[in-house]
Design a protein around this nucleic acid. Structure first.
Lengths: 339, 339
DNA sequence: CTGTTAGCGCCTTCAG
DNA sequence: CTGAAGGCGCTAACAG
């Protein structure tokens, strides 16, 4: 492995001079700079960043911690994060927690060991507070994306779950739906909780009763069946829901699959709406009515905020960026119904 | 930042002893091991891997270099790679080249600087040879996935482009199609070239003529329109193609969009088939007829192979793993046609 | 404008 | 079973 000393020897200068031209620091005569640069090129020298990190306490490494890159929302988030990171000269380590707090913990430890400069994280749930504190103890700045955790001093990039939910529900209500069921995730995840609360509030505001049996919880894990759906479908037609609000597109798809297995067509027999778009899919068959969130921006801006903090360019206070959803009406919500 | 010396002091031992318990190396009395472990826990000590790397010349860092994480094929590949990497105690740096050789070069330099232990790469094209040579010069093992480059001594995980193409074309031919057009990518990418060659061979084997104007090249970049399609569609109905073979699903979607803009329905007016599945999509609406490749395995096995090489567990010779595609017949290819 | 010295945090080697 | 010395490749701080 060629080192700074090999270059120094070849260029007849000291290692410091080499270091200076590499980092463009201090004043160097054009002549020696050229000598050094030639030597670097001739020997194909590339600085060892482990050695640099040891000195500078900076690794130029960031990490994006999400639940699953395979979820189209997070795929886009990842693309945004990588783009910004690279643009600013950082590399990005990707971690999938699969909604599992333990996995998240292990990753956080590994990232601390790697001394990453910053972390962009969509936490697995409120319990993640402990993991975030570990980051803080190690002075690793992080920004929370998509999911909020209370009382954590950090930058955040969040969606507007209240507004997104309201868009979707009012669209259904306007179409005549009165019995709207919801499939949500664990309430320990802020997005799920907020959408849940917004659901309750919006129904009330519209003088609709909130039927507890219409609230179905999913675990955000891989199991194929949503428990409790079939039970709902067995209700007499004038009692069963006419529409479903799924808390995200993953769940909406599970749901639609299950409805079809139960012999129901979407949207003819049941309207379905959800959060988050299905990028490629919509090009082929614009089907799902969604509150579309700017996933790419979650990653891009989230990364920008950590980098600013890493490099000391941040204001003293913490910032909270709010990204607005957009209602996109497509087939799955059907048209007006008459009871 | 707490170091090995802080632990040593607190446990009343030398730093060497601490290092030994961390790495489980050499013999240590149970008593001192416990003392050290307690100190580590009390101080929340986590070893600095930059320092470790500097000594050991191992970073426990791998990198996956693909063209675009947003492409569903590569999303799956990434998931497989991350899973295997973590399972073996490595972290994964993700890079998107966007089919751009220059970007790829920059990434390779950055990865060399980071002294990653290994790279899993789907090269941008034949020109990537130069980048791979740079890796070799720096003794960084890599495995080629999905796309092959001639005469590079390394492990590879490849699909069977010939078979996949044949599956698709024979399915169309069996359905009565005789004029089958193809949309391929740059021939400097092995997958595209092999599918192209397989297309020509398969048509010939079936006594169909290969019409040069039916061969359309796309650049695998983001532009929205496929040049040359509209020209084909203007042909009289008994001369224009009745089916399209798109070299991957990204292109198939572009194509279908464009066909529809031209007033053609798929599959009623035009059959379309392609490589690679659209995971989530197929749950909602099983539409595209594809040669489905085990994308996850490309990443998983590719990563396994590098790790084996990094850790010296590999055989002397280089391995080439062949992953078989599976023909999945769905709507987009329609049913039999009669001319 | 350039060089010397020392140290980042850890592990290898060699003693004891 | 444990410790002391030295070095991995680089840069900060100081000299000249």
């Amino acid at each position: 492995m060629t080192t700074i000393y090999d270059i120094a020897k070849r260029a007849n200068v000291s290692s410091m001079t080499v270091s200076r031209v590499i980092n463009n620091k201090g004043n160097i005569s054009e002549a020696t700079r050229k000598k050094v640069e030639d030597a670097i090129r001739e020997l194909n020298y590339i600085p060892n960043s482990a050695a640099q990190s040891l000195n500078l306490k900076k690794t130029k490494l960031l990490s994006l911690v999400i639940t699953d890159i395979t979820n189209p929302f997070f795929t886009k988030v990842a693309r945004g994060a990588i783009d910004k990171a690279n643009q600013m000269g950082y590399q990005l380590i990707l971690c999938n927690t699969d909604e599992d707090y333990e996995k998240e913990s292990e990753y956080i430890d590994a990232l601390i060991a790697k001394r990453v400069d910053g972390v962009i994280i969509a936490p697995t749930g409120d319990a993640s507070l402990k993991n975030l504190k570990k980051l803080m103890k190690n002075r690793i700045p992080f920004t929370l994306i998509d999911r909020k955790i209370e009382d954590v001093p950090c930058d955040m990039v969040l969606g507007d779950n209240y507004e997104g939910t309201r868009f979707l529900l009012q669209h259904l209500i306007k179409n005549g739906h009165q019995r709207i069921a919801m499939v949500h995730g664990p309430l320990s995840i802020s997005t799920s909780k907020e959408r849940y609360q917004a659901y309750v509030e919006t129904l009330k505001l519209n003088d609709l009763t909130v039927n507890p049996s219409f609230l179905i919880e999913d675990h955000y894990k891989q199991e194929d069946q949503l428990a409790g759906i079939n039970h709902l479908l067995e209700l007499p037609e004038d009692e069963r829901p006419t529409a479903f609000f799924a808390v995200n597109n993953f769940i909406a798809i599970k749901l639609i699959k299950q409805l079809r297995q139960g012999g129901l067509r979407v949207p003819e027999d049941m309207a379905v709406v959800c959060f988050d778009d299905l990028e490629l899919f919509i090009e082929l068959d614009p089907f799902l009515t969604v509150s579309s969130q700017p996933a790419y921006d979650f990653g891009y801006i989230g990364t920008q905020l950590v980098i600013e903090r890493v490099e000391g360019d941040s204001p003293t206070g913490y910032r909270s960026i709010n990204l607005k959803p957009e209602l996109v009406i497509r087939k799955s919500s059907g048209t007006s119904i008459k009871e």
